[in-house]
Design a protein around this nucleic acid. Structure first.
Lengths: 122, 122
DNA sequence: ACGCGATTGAGAATCCATTATCATCTGGCC
DNA sequence: GGCCAGATGATAATGGATTCTCAATCGCGT
């Protein structure tokens, strides 16, 4: 059966305290403040498992690789800082957004990304 | 100096006739209908050169690698078909979109992507 | 405390997109 | 037609993200 390890607990704590989409490297960096020996393979394994059990969801932003965030939250979008490459949540969403598709196209979901400089990098 | 080769002409023709963002592989596939010997390295080289001279622009969509489209067109967004993975243009754009950022964040640009099934794949 | 099977972590291996290499080919000028 | 530097194309090499391997470690039920 699945065991409750320090590493897995640390990874969950990271997502709960940081509250924004994180790359595996960011998870590693934050997680090592809790469990210094944490390895990247463990991050990938646990993130994958947490996605499978529905606790995390994948966030695909233009450009780089996948990020992950707590699943189950309300609909929202993201802001990607061009300077520090951190992603942040954006709570608003224009409601007419899915009516913009070409005729005869079926829209299933959408993603809106703002690019710029975050508060720290302005 | 730069020479006007069959391959480069074919690649330009592909973008002008297809009129949607293309991956290098899609450019190769379409280009081979014009110049069957076309190689992927030539596609990458020419696409890169066409971006450098401002004739093409890069399109970064969530997930996979880069796509390219004719530069200089009006502001627009994209639709990505989950079934055939082809990208299409979406001409509309909600105008309040860049006002959604968190306070103290500077927005420089934005990207909106609709996901679903294109006309062919419905 | 014991034992075992799940988990970890370091490094190797893999995957995929892109770029470099280099012998061959070819546009454009004479 | 002939030259030759730029261009091509097959293949190898690269780089970055992710996964695999496997010996060592460690939850957890007994």
């Amino acid at each position: 059966m699945q065991r409750d390890t320090r590493q897995r607990r640390a990874i969950r704590d990271v997502f709960m305290s940081v509250a924004r989409p994180l790359t595996p490297d960011e998870v590693l960096e934050h997680g090592r403040r809790i469990v210094p020996s944490l390895g990247i393979a463990t991050v990938y394994r646990n993130v994958k498992a947490l996605v499978a059990e529905g606790w995390l969801s994948e966030v695909k932003l233009p450009g780089g690789g996948l990020r992950y965030e707590l699943a189950g939250g309300p609909h929202h979008h993201h802001f990607l800082c061009r300077t520090c490459d951190q992603a942040f949540d954006v709570d608003l969403c224009p409601d007419e957004i899915e009516e913009m598709a070409p005729a005869h196209f079926q829209v299933e979901s959408h993603e809106l990304v703002l690019f710029g400089r975050c508060e720290e990098c302005v």
